[in-house]
Structures are given as structure tokens and as C-alpha cells.
């Protein structure tokens, strides 16, 4: 059983690390490095869930932490890495990406999220309510990352990072969702990654590249 003060500090730390990683993703050009960052996010997420579990003693939070670890630290990164290897895009990087501008927009998004969450978290009663703003910021930042990327894999990683943000909001602000929903989401994510993986092969088959701007040629003329 962890003390409440320490829990709140540890969860805050995890929140900050998650946000840091979300920002690092925004600034990262290389796809392989993105997967590493995503894995690190998974670790931070699992730790924060575990900390909340230790503090509250809710049994399902332990499962949730384990599930997070299995899915987001082991399974998904493994699949993604494999995909990248099979698609032979290890060395590809995003081109034409103004990182500074993206990050400045990211900063504004963070301010927006923090400002928005301030009154909400004042209403919440859980020990870690201040993290709601960070969770929201992570979701928005990941969204921003999906918008700015042109490679299909980066977009999928952005999508997964967004899910991380949502999950973090759920675990820290409301002590997790019912187990059933959590399993459902986990399964969804897994399936989504599989399906998208298949898509990647199809896209590459068609265009010899994973650059999404090729898809623009599919519209009606």
C-alpha cells in the first residue's frame, strides 16, 4: 500500500514523462525511433497504472497494469517492428516536416488542454486529478502528430499514442474503466493494428511507397 502523497507524486511524474514522450514523438522524424518512444510510453503507462493499483488496492487495476504491459510494451511494439522490417522501411524518415513550427503549435495545444482541464479537475475528487489536463494534452498532441505525418506507419503510431492518452485519463482520473470495456478496447487496438498492417502491404503494393499523399490520386477526377 503506497501513501497517497507518494502516489500522487509518482503518477504526476509518469504523467510528465508521458507528455514528454508525446512531445518527443512530435519532434521525431524516424519511424523506428517512434516505435521506441511508443514503447517507452507503454512502460510509463503501465507503471502509473500499477502505482494507482498499489494505492487503491483495486484488484482490476493490477490486471489493467499487466494488460497494458503485455499489449503496449511487448505485443504492439513487436508487431510494429516486425511490420517495419517486413516492409523494409527502417531507414525511412518523414520528409518536409517543420519540427519547430509543429512543436510551437503543440505548445499552444498543451496550454489549451491545461486551461480546459483546470476547472474540470477542480471538480474531480481522485488524488491524481491534476493529470487530467496532461492526459488531454497527450490525446491532442497525438492527434496533431497524425495530422502532420505523411507516412502510414507514423499515423498508426499516432493513433496508438492517442489511445494511450485516453487510457491514462481513465486510469488516473477515474481509477480505470470496467474490466470488460478495457479488454474490449485492448482487443480493438490489437485488431486495428493487424488490419492496418495488412493495409500497409496493400498500399505499398499499389504505390511502391507508404507515403499517404499517393492516396490523393484515388479521388474522383
Amino acid at each position: 500500500m503506497l501513501s497517497t502523497a507518494l502516489t500522487s507524486q509518482l503518477v504526476n511524474l509518469c504523467a510528465a514523462v508521458l507528455l514528454l514522450l508525446a512531445f518527443a514523438m512530435l519532434a521525431q522524424r524516424r519511424t523506428v525511433a517512434l516505435v521506441d518512444l511508443f514503447t517507452a510510453q507503454g512502460v510509463a503507462l503501465a507503471i502509473s497504472t500499477l502505482v494507482v493499483a498499489l494505492n487503491t488496492g483495486h484488484g482490476h487495476m493490477y490486471y489493467s497494469a499487466a494488460l497494458t504491459f503485455a499489449l503496449k510494451v511487448c505485443a504492439l511494439p513487436w508487431i510494429l517492428r516486425r511490420l517495419i522490417r517486413r516492409l523494409d522501411v527502417q531507414w525511412e524518415a518523414e520528409s518536409r516536416l517543420d519540427i519547430t513550427a509543429t512543436m510551437i503549435i503543440g505548445l499552444l495545444v498543451v496550454i489549451f488542454a491545461f486551461g480546459l482541464a483546470e476547472p474540470i479537475s477542480a471538480l474531480a475528487t481522485t488524488i491524481t486529478r491534476a493529470t487530467l489536463g496532461i492526459a488531454l494534452a497527450i490525446v491532442l498532441l497525438s492527434f496533431l502528430m497524425m495530422i502532420t505525418r505523411r507516412k502510414a506507419i507514423s499515423q498508426v503510431i499516432g493513433f496508438l499514442a492517442m489511445e494511450n492518452g485516453l487510457f491514462f485519463a481513465a486510469s488516473s482520473a477515474t481509477y480505470g474503466m470496467p474490466m470488460l470495456i478495457e479488454f474490449g478496447i485492448a482487443l480493438d487496438v490489437l485488431v486495428a493494428v493487424f488490419v492496418l498492417g495488412v493495409f500497409f502491404f496493400q498500399i505499398r503494393e499499389q504505390f511502391d511507397s507508404l507515403d499517404l499523399h499517393n492516396l490523393e490520386s484515388l479521388r474522383d477526377k
Binding site: 505548445l107 496550454i111 491545461f114 486551461g115 483546470e118 476547472p119
Partner: peptide, 10 residues
Amino acid sequence: QPFIDMFVPL
């Protein structure tokens, strides 16, 4: 004032 206390330190 929320928002302002974050924006202005920028």
C-alpha cells in the same frame, strides 16, 4: 484567472 496564468508566463 485560468488560462491567463498559463499564457502569460510564456
